[in-house]
């Protein structure tokens, strides 16, 4: 129950900040590569640094931060590495065409941007497809590669 309330409150806060600042890490990488504009890229570095500081502090303060730092611990499965590379590449590639990452699309849809609303229709239909079809391919990949 606490988790549900916490995620709702954090969602409201980051939704508000995301709308005011047009926060989007994918656009940050794109802008830097296209026009050498690093303004939006700073958001990506902010999350990495904020996360690192937060996990370190809360770990020392007795919070539940298991296996910190993760290091090479999640590298034991070849299938997971392939899945991360393929998934990351596809997400980055198609997010450029959509003009924003999934977070930005949710923010734009809430503002009333029609393209983002249609994007989310495809996004949630895609979850159904993933659960029926793509997950079987993923299982096959993990089965073959270990």
């Amino acid at each position: 129950m606490i988790m549900m309330v916490a995620t709702l409150l954090v969602g409201v806060l980051i939704g508000y900040m995301g709308q005011r600042t047009r926060f989007c890490p994918v656009s940050g990488i794109r802008d830097y590569f296209m026009i050498r504009d690093s303004v939006r890229l700073k958001g990506l570095f902010g999350i990495i640094i904020g996360g690192a500081i937060g996990y370190t502090i809360f770990n020392f303060a007795g919070g539940d931060v298991p296996n910190f730092p993760l290091g090479l611990e999640d590298l034991d499965s070849t299938g997971l590495v392939i899945s991360a590379i393929l998934g990351g590449f596809g997400l980055g590639f198609f997010s450029v065409f959509a003009e924003g990452c999934p977070f930005r699309q949710h923010v734009m849809a809430a503002e009333g941007r029609q393209g983002a609303i249609y994007y989310l229709i495809g996004f949630y239909l895609g979850i159904v497809y993933f659960n029926y079809v793509t997950i079987k391919w993923l299982g096959l990949l993990l089965g073959i590669t270990g």
Binding site: G87, G88, G90, F94, S95, Y129, F130, T134, L138
Partner: peptide, 9 residues
């Protein structure tokens, strides 16, 4: 497409 690639990672 984004969600189907995204859910791989």
């Amino acid at each position: 497409l984004v969600i189907n690639f995204g859910l791989l990672w």
